[in-house]
Write a protein that binds this DNA or RNA. Structure first.
Lengths: 139, 139
DNA sequence: GCTTGACCTCAAGTCGGCTTGAACTTGTAG
DNA sequence: CTACAAGTTCAAGCCGACTTGAGGTCAAGC
């Protein structure tokens, strides 16, 4: 399976063909060539698509993702920028971990209302601690 | 500061007044009453807004968030559902942690192209391992 | 008691991320 | 060699999450 046409990529990646065309148009991926009109993709595309999906769940826009990894999938940023993205991600991870803990605790806590439970509130406070991360921060 | 009008809430939370009205319309929050036409909010609103923001960065839609916590901000799900959400969150956290590690490693790795670096690829593989989580999974 | 500016409602607009549909081309199977 | 399923382009549409604008109301300060 060296070269795949669009439907094969769709099948293996779970990403619809229409989305693949859209991504190409947006410069997030590139087809390796054409057979007639039909796009041909190399196997690396699957890796790249995982990366894109990952970036999305991390809350990055397609534009940001395109900026981070070129259409080739290679990280495309300076050391400093990479570290900054990693740090941003770590802050997100911390908040989400706190939320997870909070939910799990709420599931088992006997307090009459969760908001009265000090543990739950403490976890929420941690979770809510959103400094200027540049990540989805409201104006 | 017992009762706040909408602009005070906006100021303290960073969430624009238009968004607050929108959230109320969508049933994510409730104003505690009115003074004339003007909405009045209690202090809890700030906590609730943090929770909403958190849910958003976790990748939940406003509908889902409204389902998880009523307009009051109280968790609104069964133990099982809370555990399920927590588990889902944990999987997201794992993937994001892997991405973070991957980025950080890429920043310092001497390999000519990152895709050739076995460490980077291994991290990506971990990161890409997306089973049926129900979370942002493509059709 | 009047002005004024912060609030209100409601409809329409915007933006990102795709999807859908119509009209067309083409590699492959029979 | 023809039929056709699967591909292509391009424009338009859709959904979620808001924002904006026009026009109306009202509480507070002068």
């Amino acid at each position: 399976m060296k070269l795949m046409d669009i439907s094969e990529v769709a099948k293996h990646s779970g990403v619809p063909a229409s989305t693949l065309r859209y991504y190409e148009e947006q410069g997030l991926i590139t087809s390796i060539g054409r057979r007639g009109l039909r796009r041909l993709f190399g196997p690396e595309i699957l890796q790249q698509l995982s990366l894109i999906a990952l970036g999305q769940t991390a809350g990055f826009s397609l534009d940001e993702i395109a900026g981070m990894f070129g259409a080739n999938g290679e990280p495309n940023l300076s050391r400093a920028e990479l570290h900054a993205k990693a740090d941003e991600l770590d802050r997100t991870v911390q908040r989400l971990s706190a939320l997870s803990d909070g939910l799990r605790h709420a599931a088992d806590c006997p307090a009459p209302t969760h908001m009265e439970c000090p543990t739950f509130r403490r976890l929420l406070d941690i979770a809510a601690r959103r400094k200027a991360t540049g990540h989805r921060t409201a104006p």
